[in-house]
Design a protein around this nucleic acid. Sequence first.
DNA 1: CGACATGGTAAGCAAGCGCTCATGTTCTGA
DNA 2: TCAGAACATGAGCGCTTGCTTACCATGTCG
Lengths: 197, 197
Amino acid sequence: MQQVGETQPTVAQQRVLDAAAACFGERGFHGTTTRDIAKQAQLSPAVLYVHYPTKEDVLYEISRAGHVAALEVLRAAAARGSTPTEQLGELAQDFALWHARSHAVARVVNYELGALSPAHHEQIALLRRQMEQVTREVLEAGLDSGEFAVANTSLTALAVLSLGVDVGRWFKTTGTWQPEDVAKHYRELALRMVLAH
Amino acid sequence: MQQVGETQPTVAQQRVLDAAAACFGERGFHGTTTRDIAKQAQLSPAVLYVHYPTKEDVLYEISRAGHVAALEVLRAAAARGSTPTEQLGELAQDFALWHARSHAVARVVNYELGALSPAHHEQIALLRRQMEQVTREVLEAGLDSGEFAVANTSLTALAVLSLGVDVGRWFKTTGTWQPEDVAKHYRELALRMVLAH
DNA sequence: CGACATGGTAAGCAAGCGCTCATGTTCTGA
DNA sequence: TCAGAACATGAGCGCTTGCTTACCATGTCG
């Protein structure tokens, strides 16, 4: 097979991707061997190369799918709210929720960009810029309506996203809080950062 | 020599540490070879083992010194302010400033914990708990005085630190903003998250 | 049936890895 | 002046790495 593009992965491919995402999320790309991935997937060491040409292509596919998912979370949240305040609240909440629930993939998405080939990195950078764009647009709408008051739109957009991103770093499923608790609280924190009063 | 403890590193040791920190910060611990470090330090591949028993010990020393420095930043900021509002402002500002200025070391500090040996990891975890402790105490002082109003002290402390931590991920020296600009803005964002009104 | 596509494996290769060791070289102090 | 400690190196060892190859099981379809 060895197709890697935008097509839907088969069941077997998804199994490799899931195993690799779990490993990459825990030990990082360079800390994970192809044998680790095979073991996690309960398959032979060679199975990776039946479906993907290189280990880096596996990373790219995980990163790409993860970024598409995260971007969709942001877009859906922004579309759901009827006011900028609602939009930013939903955005911050759902972004944090996704990072808590999918923290393995989230770690790959946010911390393994440097392991991508230059060509792949560029594709991913495109998606990341769109994520910032969506957030900035919600902030700008709130500034126009007078609901928000912030000194630096770009820097504040980064900060709103930072809150969510960093959840992926510290969140543990064995911890005290549920993903939903964290997300609800982060919605409030993000809104406080931007609201005028 | 091969001493790794709490003693001051010699000039030669510091040179190895600086080179390793630059490499680890850019490509991660597992993405960096001992030859990379030697090349960065403009020394022979074997030089690392003159001063440290293993590559992991170099990581530990960088991580330990980095955590001590970051903790000191937090403590100094908290000690400087005369009110909880001032304290948290200074804390958020200086923490972000440190992460912007020392973003290479900061990345090692925050993202390479998993590469430490269990024994070393435990030592570092001690320092990290103290960092959260300092932040929580400032928040609690502000709650007692009525200056702050937050629903969940621990989660809010995490969020305040998150803002700074994530600066280490995205900050580039070649970017638009200076470390001081980011830090000033982040002071405001952190204060907005916690202030009562 | 049998030709063939699909999905999987065991074994192993070349290269690069962390680390060692025998051997200088420089610095310090009696 | 020169012994000994401290610092540094070139060469290379044994092992692990990403990846390849030759081969096998299964199911589909004319």
